[in-house]
């Protein structure tokens, strides 16, 4: 009996060997790559993007819209080349280089989303609300309504594109190094999840409960990044306005959250939030030195 078993074992092993030999018979690898760059001719702007986004930061700056890259729930239109050039300049100057300046280019290279995708139109929901920016897993940031951008309107830049960018980047930061659990405890009874946009959840109510925006009431992570982004990009006057609108009790809560944000940036990343804001403001004030027309 044992002998037979032995024989079978040997037979099976041989068989296995044979099978392996067969299954290893592979086609040779083709020398031709299946990944090909688009063959569209490079413009000056394309070359500018290569030397200002791709080579230094490994960022793909997609101004040519591809529907497959975008949210299929929306009807969309691409950005104009003119607005794309202005956006590329602004994003680099007011966002990427601000972090370069305060935390060093290695920091930015490591954490910046690797794809920036521009959409010309807004992303309109059937409810009439409009999406201006989204970020997916820290890898890609999509900016909408580029064709509607007015580079002369600094308040719109603060409130629209740059609030979005600082907001999304703050998500990337806390996903890498978490913030203190004390933050969540401050307002934990006042988060309302998706009801944040319900008509009853007004901005005045959000202020009075110690939130800088309605959206901040969605959940602690959004609250955290909204607090950070509002402080950095809105400017002191607007920030003071929010504190005043919040009333003494609301302002105390916002200030308590701000202290945690400030300490987090300082301890976890070595970033002084006041300095970050100063850099942003200085750059915003010197926008007229930027050529937003020619790449």
């Amino acid at each position: 009996m044992k002998k037979i078993m032995e024989k079978i074992k040997i037979f099976l092993m041989l068989l296995l060997l044979l099978a392996t030999a067969w299954s290893c018979k592979e086609d040779d690898l083709s020398s031709e790559s299946i990944f090909k760059e688009s063959t569209a001719e490079q413009t000056d702007f394309d070359r500018w993007l290569l030397s200002n986004y791709t080579y230094p930061y490994n960022i793909t700056f997609k101004y040519k819209m591809q529907d497959i890259e975008s949210n299929r729930d929306y009807q969309l239109a691409p950005a104009t080349v003119e607005k794309s050039i202005a956006t590329a300049k602004l994003v680099k100057y007011l966002w990427i280089e601000t972090y370069d300046e305060i935390a060093g280019i290695d920091f930015t290279r490591k954490y910046i989303p690797k794809v920036i995708h521009l959409i010309g139109s807004g992303g309109y929901n059937s409810t009439g609300s409009v999406v201006l920016g989204t970020a997916s897993q820290g890898m890609k940031i999509t900016l909408y309504d580029i064709n509607g951008m007015d580079v002369k309107n600094l308040d719109a830049l603060r409130n629209g594109y740059f609030k979005t960018m600082y907001h999304e980047f703050a998500h990337i930061l806390h996903q890498n190094k978490n913030y203190s659990v004390d933050f969540e405890a401050i307002s934990h009874n006042d988060y309302v999840s998706d009801d944040w946009s319900a008509s009853t959840e007004t901005l005045a109510l959000a202020y009075s409960k110690g939130f800088v925006s309605r959206y901040a009431r969605k959940e602690p992570n959004e609250d955290f990044v909204e607090t950070l982004a509002y402080f950095v990009v809105l400017g002191q006057a607007n920030w003071d306005g929010i504190l005043a609108a919040a009333g003494p009790a609301g302002a105390d809560i916002i200030n308590a959250k701000f202290d945690i944000v400030k300490d987090y940036l300082s301890v976890s990343w070595g970033i002084d939030i006041y300095e970050l804001r100063r850099i942003f403001e200085r750059r915003l004030a010197s926008l007229d030195q930027l050529d937003l027309v020619n790449p």
Binding site: A40, Y63, K64, M65, Q66, D67, Y74, Q75, L76, A77, P78, A79, T80, V81, K83, S84, G120, S121, G122, G123, Y124, N125, S126, G128, V130, N147
Partner: peptide
């Protein structure tokens, strides 16, 4: 694909806040 905005081509696809589907 018409990859950058064209006032003629994208007239038919551009969405508006009052008409989120544009001209389909």
């Amino acid at each position: 694909s018409f990859t950058t905005y064209n006032k003629v081509m994208h007239y038919f696809s551009e969405p508006y806040s009052w008409d989120v589907d544009g001209r389909y």
